[in-house]
């Protein structure tokens, strides 16, 4: 049964035009597909090849290419392999179609991606705010959103110098890191 399905899946994927398939390990398959063909492919995977479990939808912001990459991870309990379907959509206007009618769990992931990346999914049941209920800034997971710049614009820094710290600093200690030793943090501020 499992072997038949696996063969069937390979035949199905080989026959379809416009998709690129690569087996990355025994149980992992990477498929790249054009954005207009993705819902049809997922329908086939779920309906004909037993990929009933949508494990996750991930979004990657490729800002230099001006694209969002959406990755649909589908698992089959029968074939016991995971297909990651990659597709790319233009970053502007960032609109895509929902797969909620194929996979119910998609509702959560699409809502999350809409909130964090600003991608609008046509037909998703609920794209209202969920985690960032009172957030009025740009979608924060986009690459052009700089958390530190946002904090500097919207909040003030507070000096923290209690007496015990002054004593320490007078003796050459303390919690402040000299600028030439700051290797990983606040680099963006120093550069600008």
């Amino acid at each position: 049964m499992t072997n038949e399905l696996t063969t069937w899946l390979d035949t199905l994927l080989a026959e379809l035009d416009g998709i690129e398939v690569r087996r990355t390990s025994r149980r992992r398959l990477r498929v790249e597909v054009a954005s207009d063909a993705l819902p049809a492919l997922l329908e086939l995977l779920r309906g004909r090849a037993s990929f009933v479990h949508l494990s996750a939808i991930s979004c990657v912001d490729w800002i230099d290419a001006g694209q969002f990459e959406l990755v649909y991870h589908c698992w089959s309990y029968e074939i016991q392999s995971l297909v990651s379907v990659h597709t790319r959509i233009p970053r502007e206007p960032g609109v895509y179609i929902s797969v909620y009618d194929i996979y119910t769990p998609a509702a959560f992931f699409e809502r999350d991606i809409h909130e964090m990346f600003g991608v609008w999914f046509e037909g998703s049941p609920d794209l209202s705010r969920f985690i960032l209920t009172e957030w009025d800034g740009p979608p924060p997971m986009r690459k052009d959103f700089d958390s530190e710049a946002w904090v500097n614009q919207h909040f003030g820094w507070q000096d923290y110098h209690p007496d015990w710290l002054k004593d320490l600093e007078a003796r050459g200690g303390g919690i402040a890191v000299p600028p030439n030793e700051q290797r990983f943090s606040r680099r963006t501020v120093d550069e600008t």
């Binding site: 969920f130 985690i131 960032l132 209920t133 924060p140 958390s147 990983f184």
Partner: peptide, 20 residues
């Protein structure tokens, strides 16, 4: 209704080294 524990870990991780 979620969001009371949001710490933005996915964003934080993009700004830190693999080992951090």
């Amino acid at each position: 209704d979620a969001g009371y524990l949001h710490r933005g870990f996915e964003k934080l991780m993009e700004g830190r080294l693999w080992i951090q």
